[in-house]
Design a protein around this nucleic acid. Structure first.
Lengths: 168, 168
DNA sequence: TCTCAATTGACAGTATACTGCCAATATGGC
DNA sequence: GCCATATTGGCAGTATACTGTCAATTGAGA
């Protein structure tokens, strides 16, 4: 054979970076499909959970808690506020800061959407054997954790607690 | 403890969808960092490799070969053309189609950028033990392949060959 | 107290990633 | 040859995801 294009493309198809991108696209597609009755994206869902977990968090700390950058989060927060799922209240002791709170509608939405989110998470790994699902998840969690500092916005879970004075 | 916010966030942190997103963000950050001397993104790199592998491919088939949707690819192609790495030529037998070819500059770029791309791919998995790297890659490749149809733009590697009359 | 560095949220700009929709063009059934 | 259908590339619109910059505000040190 003179022409074997597949050999060249295999360098792309088997590259970790390409596989991570494809898997992320598939994961988002599955999430959106399972949650189509609720007008919510994966990022918006993560933000809502974080705000429910840390009521009164500000945008900068929120970005550290879910590891999305501040610029992106600005528009995410805007959309969540427009949909009535969260409220933004100015902080009394710091005029720069706006504190984030879940509304009743946001709270209800999280309760209602839970089964769909769970279905989505299950579906993503469904094609693998149960043991392999566990293996993949463990390795991926390790890799993400160990590569945390390589990310542009490293995860800083403990940051979220500081404003509540629970971590020093 | 009355307040245990971490327990709630763990539902996000251990969710496959969240881990896939974080890993993808990390992978892109590492790619961009290693390839900072070359003004090229991961998607643009994949597109260039695919065009080199299938000279004279059109945009629709290209989208099937690298599994990116047509709309996104339109602007990617535009940028690659603006940088002088590819050429768009109208197809003689079909006035709708524009065929894509690598330029000399594109060819040189691919040759020069290769070491940086390889470094990036290695760095993404570096924190894991060698055996775990292999395991993760194999499982991920399996999962992506088995979930191919769940993607909005399933990979159709064979489509790229049709215009060359090599697959029936 | 005053000044300077850091923080916060906002904005502009670029690049994916998707949904639709559209006009031009091809093609297959009749 | 004609017409319904499909394909192709382009466009508008939405949503991440990042880079930078900026003004307002805060806080820490001289």
């Amino acid at each position: 054979m003179q022409n074997r294009p597949d050999i060249t493309m295999d360098a792309v198809y088997t590259a970790p970076g390409y596989l991570f991108r494809r898997m992320q696209q598939i994961a988002v597609a599955i999430f959106i499909e399972e949650c189509r009755d609720f007008d919510l994206t994966p990022v918006q869902y993560a933000a809502l959970i974080a705000i429910r977990t840390h009521p009164g968090i500000d945008a900068t700390r929120l970005s550290a808690v879910i590891a999305f950058d501040r610029s992106t989060l600005g528009s995410v927060i805007e959309r969540l506020e427009a949909k009535g799922y969260i409220e933004r209240k100015p902080a009394p002791e710091d005029k720069r800061v706006k504190l984030l709170y879940l509304t009743k509608a946001g709270s209800s939405l999280l309760r209602d959407i839970m089964p769909a989110v769970d279905r989505a998470q299950v579906r993503m790994l469904q094609p693998l054997k149960p043991a392999d699902r566990k293996t993949l998840l463990v390795l991926l969690a390790q890799l993400v954790d160990l590569n945390n500092e390589a990310s542009r916005v490293p995860l800083r879970a403990e940051d979220a607690l500081e404003h509540l004075g629970k971590v020093g």
